[in-house]
Design a binder for these strands. Structure first.
Lengths: 145, 145
DNA sequence: TGCAGAAGCCTGCATATGCAGATATCGTCC
DNA sequence: GGACGATATCTGCATATGCAGGCTTCTGCA
């Protein structure tokens, strides 16, 4: 019988973390010529889709701690790709927006993103990629917390 | 037709990174009472399975940069859970081993790991969990590089 | 033997991640 | 109007992650 010491062989965390590292590497390398990490690219995409979002709401939608997001924004603000101005109605809230430079950088970086996405699709196959995406979506939905 | 601006909606990186954050959080919280992160727990498990492993080989098996692994070992060495001694035959190599304290810590932490694993299995269901694990394994295999 | 290239590991740099706790603001209840 | 709890964000701390570049050691070939 399988002993308890073999248990970590079925560890979901080990797998998803490995996959995250590997896949992040692929995207990071394609995005590097555009001076963006995959994290930063994702933030810009989110902000383009939801201009004026607050940090807390954005953090929740990205399944990320608000403090992490707050700090991840720092390099983008410093480079002038994102601005954060106080909400008129609620002094606690910082409303995030893409600057024109941020929008332009995102446009250019899209080519790198597509290249990375193609690498994944080529390696896994289109169907397997879709299946993986769907499985991850289901997991995220069920683990929402 | 779907415009290019919607493309990131099908981004595999965003999904796997979100899932990694969420799942890591679950494991980290269960392992925290044992003073281990999920990364550290994983390292101890690997070293128990492959005593005397070198950093490079271990890094490759964990799909992790060798420099990252090197630094991740630091807290474990400092706490006396892991030792690294020079290889007799090759002065470049550091052979990693679990100390008795490391082994004992791992034993105790196994309960936390099981609790986290149970949370995943309960939320996703056993079949879905197996399917997700299998999909991640396939992806890691195809993306090996 | 000696040297050139490879291999293994490290440091420096920058970002990524989350928890605990602090601060400021808002809303509400009295 | 003021106190109190809730909310939004930030700081301090520690670990996690990978790239560029450097040092030491090994290996193979001349």
């Amino acid at each position: 019988m399988a002993s308890a010491s073999l248990a970590p062989n079925v560890c979901t965390a080990a797998r998803v973390r490995k996959a995250s590292r590997r896949i992040s590497q692929i995207y990071d390398r394609e995005l590097a010529p555009h001076d963006l990490t995959v994290t930063q690219f994702g933030l810009l995409v989110q902000l383009r889709a939801a201009p004026g979002a607050a940090i807390g709401a954005l953090a929740e939608s990205m399944v990320m701690d608000a403090t992490t997001l707050s700090r991840n924004l720092r390099p983008l603000e410093r480079r002038g790709l994102v601005t954060a101005e106080a909400d008129k109605d609620d002094g606690r809230v910082r409303k995030l927006k893409l600057t024109p430079a941020g929008r332009a950088t995102l446009e250019r970086a899209m080519a790198g993103w597509r290249a990375a996405q193609d690498q994944i699709a080529t390696a896994l196959g289109v169907d397997e990629t879709k299946a993986l995406n769907a499985a991850l979506d289901r997991a995220l939905d069920r683990l929402a917390g």
